[in-house]
Deep mutational scan, measured.
Amino acid sequence: MDVFMKGLSKAKEGVVAAAEKTKQGVAEAAGKTKEGVLYVGSKTKEGVVHGVATVAEKTKEQVTNVGGAVVTGVTAVAQKTVEGAGSIAAATGFVKKDQLGKNEEGAPQEGILEDMPVDPDNEAYEMPSEEGYQDYEPEA
């Protein structure tokens, strides 16, 4: 019985440690998101679009440190934060509304985080759909 109880105690310690790591990862992701939003706020009209992409990228980098179902929630929060940063930029006159959601080359930025393969159960990952990809044929 002692062996059984000791095993359960060790398992509990492992769960607590994993929860603490997840909590730490979420806190880091939130900190990076805040950094990115402050970065966007300090940019001029020309830099705002690039700044919004930076927020998304920093958040995406930190999301990889967070495991399990938390990833889905962090990704949703990050996307809403990026959308909010863009709205703030438009409201303050840093950028025109028609410039939001495009990178410096004018290509749409939507789907940055949505296409990231995420499995809350950590069982399997699927690649994003290939609808947006084109076949590449090298020139002879």
Rank of each mutant, 00 (worst) to 15 (best):
D2E: 11
V3P: 00
K6M: 03
G7Q: 01
L8T: 00
L8W: 09
S9F: 14
E13G: 14
G14Y: 14
G14M: 15
V16S: 06
A19Y: 15
E20I: 15
K21R: 15
K23E: 01
K23D: 00
Q24L: 12
A27M: 08
A27D: 03
A29P: 00
A29Q: 04
T33S: 04
K34R: 03
V37E: 00
Y39M: 06
Y39S: 09
V40H: 02
V40T: 02
G41E: 01
T44W: 10
K45T: 12
E46L: 09
E46Q: 14
V49M: 07
G51Y: 10
G51W: 13
V52I: 07
V52W: 12
A53E: 06
T54V: 13
T54A: 06
A56D: 00
E57T: 09
E57I: 12
T59A: 04
K60E: 02
K60N: 01
K60I: 13
E61H: 11
N65G: 12
V66K: 02
V66F: 13
V66M: 05
G67E: 03
V71W: 08
T72F: 15
G73H: 04
V74C: 09
V77Y: 03
A78F: 14
A78L: 10
Q79E: 02
K80I: 07
T81Q: 01
V82E: 02
V82H: 05
E83D: 04
A85R: 03
A85P: 05
S87T: 11
S87P: 07
S87I: 14
I88L: 11
A89H: 06
A90L: 10
T92A: 13
V95T: 06
V95S: 11
K96M: 05
K97P: 09
Q99K: 07
N103G: 06
N103W: 11
E104D: 08
E104L: 09
G106Y: 07
A107F: 11
A107P: 15
E110C: 06
I112Q: 04
E114D: 15
E114T: 07
P117W: 07
A124R: 15
A124T: 02
Y125T: 09
E126R: 08
E126Y: 10
P128M: 08
S129G: 11
E131M: 02
G132T: 11
Q134E: 10
Y136E: 02
Y136W: 13
P138R: 09
P138C: 09
P138G: 13
A140I: 07
